[in-house]
Simulated assay, not measured.
Amino acid sequence: MNKIAIALLVITFASCAKNKEAKEKVTEQVQPKKEEVTQSKKVLFVLTSHAELGDTGVKTGFWVEEFATPYYFLKDKGFEITLASPKGGQPPIDPKSELPDFQTESTKRFNNDKEAKDQLANTLKLTEVRQSNFDAIFYPGGHGPLWDLSEDQNSISLIEEFYKNNKPVAAVCHAPAVFKNTKNEDGTSLVKGKKVTGFTNGEEAAVALTEVVPFLVEDMLKENGGIYSKAADWNPYAVEDGLLITGQNPASAELVADLLVKKLQ
């Protein structure tokens, strides 16, 4: 009897052990694996609110390609984009940038994108945005920034704060005009000793606006101590130096966006 009892106990314990092991396996299979949560990076786009090309009576604003190309380049990679401008609301579009000769895949996509158009029509005022809410700042060009964003104190302060907090600052074509009055903490120009590019004097002459614009982007960057370089007129060209990313012309917008993405990864 003792031997039989002992045998029954061994069988019972073995059965319990197997049941426990089976339950543990089932639990492992049923429990969902924890997925890695990657928070999307947030980029602030700042567009001009200036619509007049000097005293010529001609309209200006931002260049659509320089907005649409980086906008979709970043958005398609999961970046969250917020739009702002000095006055808020709808920023002026340079009418020339909507002509057939200047259409690209990104501008065509924008023309049919109601969501993007609605977002553009409701940009925040620069006074409403804070550096702490974003990972980078991007400035599309067009002639407008030469008049307003180069002198706008809110824009100047934002750029300085982004830079001070180790966050990238990107600008393309005429938008490097925003560095006209930006300073380092020691009072020197933000671009001093930095590799930069922007709309060339030759490109400005080609569009016959050398005598109309308040200053030439190429000359200003050099005067501020920037190490200016360029490609042949109208060729894609972008430069990265630390936190500063700049592009030469409309064709350089995707290069700037690509460098910004790599910087944020």
Rank of each mutant, 00 (worst) to 15 (best):
E105Q: 15
Q103I: 03
T107C: 10
E98A: 13
F79H: 07
S97E: 11
F79E: 01
K96I: 10
K96E: 14
L74S: 02
P95K: 12
L120C: 05
F79T: 01
Y72G: 05
I93K: 04
G78L: 04
F102K: 07
T107K: 10
N112Y: 05
L99M: 14
E80T: 12
F102W: 11
F79S: 02
G78N: 05
P91H: 04
K117R: 14
T82G: 05
I81L: 15
P86I: 01
T82H: 08
T107V: 04
A121S: 15
F110H: 05
L99V: 04
T123W: 05
K114N: 13
K117M: 12
E105R: 11
K87W: 01
D113H: 12
A84W: 02
F102P: 00
F73R: 11
T82F: 04
K75T: 03
R109W: 12
I81V: 09
R109M: 10
A84I: 02
Q90M: 14
E66A: 07
P100S: 11
T107Q: 11
T69V: 06
G89H: 10
K87Y: 08
T123H: 07
L120W: 00
P70V: 06
G89K: 06
T123G: 05
V64E: 14
L120F: 05
S85H: 08
L83T: 02
S97F: 06
A84K: 03
Q119D: 13
S85K: 06
P91S: 09
I81E: 09
N111P: 00
Q103A: 12
D101T: 10
Y71H: 10
P70F: 04
S106H: 06
S97V: 03
Y72N: 07
E105F: 10
L99I: 00
L83V: 02
K87C: 03
D94N: 14
I93E: 04
P95M: 11
T107L: 06
Y72I: 02
T104I: 04
L74W: 00
L120K: 01
T104Y: 09
N112P: 03
P70E: 09
I81R: 08
F73M: 07
Q103H: 13
Y71K: 00
D118F: 04
A68D: 07
Q103E: 15
A116K: 10
L99F: 13
K114D: 15
P70D: 13
Y72C: 07
Q103W: 08
D118P: 01
F73C: 07
A121E: 14
Y71M: 04
G89C: 03
P92Y: 11
K114P: 03
L120E: 02
F102L: 12
K77H: 14
K75I: 01
K77V: 00
E105T: 12
E65L: 02
P86M: 09
F110E: 03
K114C: 05
T69I: 00
K96Q: 15
D113F: 06
